[in-house]
Amino acid sequence: MTEFEKMIRGETFNGVDTDLRLRRETARLACAKFNAHPSKGNLRHITRLFAEFVSVVIEPGFQCDYGSQIHLGKNVFINFHCVFLDSAPIHIGDDVLIGPGVHLYTVDHPRDAKLRASGECFTRPITIGNNVWIGGGAKILPGINIGNNAIIAANAVVTRHVEENERYFG
């Protein structure tokens, strides 16, 4: 089984694997094309990476690891300089506003230094419900679920699940 297949299955994988590095490079180049000349035509370089999307506005500065595990609903707005590390699935519902500089992290690393040095990684998916507003600079950590209608404060570090209609200040 390849490291990509392990990653997709949610198993421990080696993040420095050559195939995974090449896949990240492909995503980086697609993002670079859009970010250098943002337009609807160049947005396709990013959206063709995505697993699923209905309608999305993405401002320049967007970066993702692979794109292939990003699932977007309708009317999603992703503001300037957002980072989606999508080693595990990222599911974003309908009518979601994502502020500038928001980071979504699905990948994590072992706490043991030797394992970490070997390149070993593991992942946990992120799920964001409908009508969510994530303030600028927020960081969403691996494995987090954010319920419908929730609001995440600017610069919050989200370390736990956020309930439906909750205002999370971190």
Results as ranks from 00 to 15, higher is better:
residue 16 V to P: 07
residue 22 L to T: 14
residue 51 A to Y: 00
residue 163 E to R: 11
residue 95 D to F: 05
residue 99 G to M: 04
residue 50 F to K: 00
residue 44 R to L: 12
residue 59 E to W: 15
residue 148 N to A: 10
residue 116 R to C: 04
residue 98 I to M: 14
residue 164 E to K: 12
residue 140 I to T: 14
residue 110 P to F: 02
residue 64 C to W: 00
residue 6 K to Y: 10
residue 11 E to G: 14
residue 165 N to F: 15
residue 136 G to N: 12
residue 114 K to F: 08
residue 62 F to L: 07
residue 63 Q to N: 15
residue 40 K to R: 13
residue 57 V to M: 12
residue 102 V to N: 15
residue 146 I to H: 01
residue 3 E to D: 06
residue 29 L to H: 06
residue 163 E to T: 15
residue 93 G to W: 00
residue 140 I to A: 03
residue 72 L to T: 01
residue 42 N to C: 10
residue 43 L to A: 10
residue 149 N to M: 03
residue 49 L to E: 02
residue 66 Y to C: 10
residue 15 G to V: 02
residue 30 A to T: 02
residue 144 I to G: 01
residue 80 F to D: 10
residue 124 R to A: 14
residue 26 T to A: 12
residue 54 V to N: 10
residue 41 G to H: 05
residue 103 H to Y: 08
residue 90 I to K: 00
residue 134 I to R: 00
residue 37 H to A: 10
residue 76 V to G: 00
residue 30 A to W: 01
residue 65 D to T: 05
residue 169 F to M: 08
residue 116 R to G: 06
residue 169 F to A: 14
residue 36 A to W: 03
residue 153 A to G: 15
residue 145 N to P: 04
residue 26 T to G: 06
residue 77 F to M: 12
residue 3 E to P: 06
residue 91 H to G: 11
residue 149 N to E: 08
residue 40 K to Y: 13
residue 165 N to V: 08
residue 164 E to M: 04
residue 111 R to W: 08
residue 17 D to Q: 13
residue 81 H to R: 09
residue 40 K to G: 08
residue 129 G to Q: 01
residue 37 H to Y: 13
residue 47 T to W: 03
residue 107 V to K: 05
residue 42 N to R: 14
residue 168 Y to V: 04
residue 155 N to S: 12
residue 167 R to H: 08
residue 23 R to D: 06
residue 111 R to S: 15
residue 141 L to F: 06
residue 94 D to V: 01
residue 115 L to D: 07
residue 105 Y to E: 07
residue 104 L to G: 05
residue 153 A to P: 05
residue 14 N to E: 11
residue 84 F to R: 02
residue 164 E to Y: 03
residue 108 D to T: 08
residue 110 P to V: 09
residue 160 R to G: 10
residue 70 I to T: 02
residue 7 M to F: 08
residue 138 A to T: 07
residue 68 S to N: 09
